[in-house]
């Protein structure tokens, strides 16, 4: 028996919104410690890794570890019926072929339940090597979304370079070029949400497809902050930590100059 209840049910909705662009179906691996998901996009260029801790739920019970294969676009449709302040309960039997969603309004005056068929999905688990990233930038999640959306007007590929002057996002296309530089502002009186922290061991300059970064940025409603971790010739890690709940991380393979 698996049962998980979350007062802030909206978090589940936001998590699925942040995944469904990249992943159409995935296994939610449930165990006594929580829920994990690892899935790649169809081009095998990016990987999403979700972690939701059992302690992050108001109630969490999982008698047997198992994968729950779910079509994310179906799940997103079901979650459209979940209102902002609803309490969400997920349930699945150990040998069942479905998952049950229950949405309760805060005042308990409306209760909806939905059942979704589970799917058998071959999961491709990747061993992600521990990386000592040479540069880590932590900034406002909404500001990062803004940069990705704004720069995509000009081109498809963004060069991210971290140097002593800050982190520069550059795009060039047929129309022209664009650069946005964000500087470390930890020494000034910037309010917490707008802080930019740059931790750099050595300068890094890598190129990435903006299309994927824009999809990752859909996770911004989950939390205020995002971290970008870079090292030469390794995938970029874009990490959204969700306080007291878990994290949503994305990996993106770099582009190389051919």
């Amino acid at each position: 028996m698996f049962e998980a209840r979350l007062t802030k049910g909206e978090l589940i909705k936001k998590v699925i919104e942040a995944l469904k662009d990249l992943v159409t179906e995935a296994n939610f691996d449930i165990s006594a410690t929580g829920i994990q998901l690892q899935a790649m996009d169809s081009s095998h260029v990016s990987l999403c890794a979700l972690q939701m801790k059992a302690e992050g739920f108001d109630h969490f019970r999982c008698d047997r570890s198992m994968p729950l294969g779910i079509n994310l676009s179906s799940m997103s449709k079901v979650l459209k019926c979940c209102n902002k302040d609803d309490i969400v309960t997920l349930k699945a039997e150990d040998d069942g072929d479905s998952i049950n969603f229950m949405f309760e309004s805060k005042d308990q005056d409306k209760i909806s339940d939905f059942e979704l068929k589970l799917m058998d999905i071959d999961s491709e688990h990747f061993g992600i090597p521990d990386t000592d990233y040479k540069a880590t930038v932590t900034m406002s999640a909404s500001e990062f979304t803004r940069i990705c959306n704004d720069l995509s007007i000009l081109g498809e590929t963004v060069a991210i370079s971290v140097g002593k002057d800050g982190v520069r996002f550059s795009v060039s296309g047929e129309m022209g070029t664009g650069n946005m530089t964000v500087r470390d502002n930890t020494s000034s009186d910037t309010k917490e949400a707008d802080r930019v922290e740059i931790d750099m061991e050595e300068p890094v300059n890598l190129n990435f497809a903006l299309r994927y970064l824009k999809s990752f940025a859909k996770a911004a409603p989950l939390t205020d902050r995002v971290s970008l971790c870079l090292s030469r010739d390794v995938p970029l890690l874009v990490k959204y930590e969700i306080p007291e709940f878990g994290s949503l991380s994305y990996y993106l393979a770099p582009k190389i100059d051919d």
Binding site: H44, V45, E124, H125, G127, A253, I256, D257
Partner: peptide, 14 residues
């Protein structure tokens, strides 16, 4: 011209 690499070039199948 930019060549998009795949993740399998960096991560191992677990």
């Amino acid at each position: 011209y930019w060549l998009q690499r795949q993740l399998s070039a960096f991560f191992n199948d677990a």
